[in-house]
Amino acid sequence: MEPDHDDTLVAKYLAGEIEAFDELLQRYKNGLFSYLYSMVRSKEEAEDLLQETFLRMIAALPRYRARGKFRAWVFKIARNLVQDRARKLMVTGVPVRLETSETDTNETPYTVTNQADDKPSPREVAMAREKREWIESAIQKLPPAQKEVFTLREYAGMPFREIAVVQSRPLGTVLARMHYALKKLRAELQKERESY
């Protein structure tokens, strides 16, 4: 059976079917959390922002106009919250926590990739971990707009055309940002190799 379209689920929820909301939550919780976590690098803050995103979404749903752009709409809410948080941090001067804390990594993480069937050797595990840590720190060094495009495409699985809607920018700008994000990551990789 064909899964319900997002707009159909919204209509069903507004008509009183709570199961339709569960389906929407199921569809977007991982993508939204990956995006929020990549932007704030703190599990607690990402959880708070995720909760706030859904609460705002619930409050705004009666005014939502079904145009087949539900995902972009929800991510726009999340993006506004991330920007509000950044503004507050600029005013209060509280430093942004860029590093993952111990408690963040101790909990069972899920990886945004397919698990291979054959088990890697301890050396391979260590190398993969090192590479992962390197790439995570390199992503944090990207300019905010490029980091956002990279995160939305790579971790939230959002097509570039929708990212253009979320960022209110032409598609060309979004593609240029992704291209420069990748080039910057490549330059960081080269620096890393040269340092060994």
Binding site: Y13, L55, E107, P109, T111
Partner: peptide
């Protein structure tokens, strides 16, 4: 190659409490 490495980014699992609160808010609203 960069994207293959980036895909392996570890994201912590959000606690179930968050989802329970969201579900309860959705239920109350409707």
């Amino acid at each position: 190659g960069i994207l293959d490495s980036a895909q392996k980014q570890a994201v912590p699992t959000p606690s179930e409490r968050v989802f329970n609160e969201i579900r309860s808010a959705a239920h109350n609203a409707i």
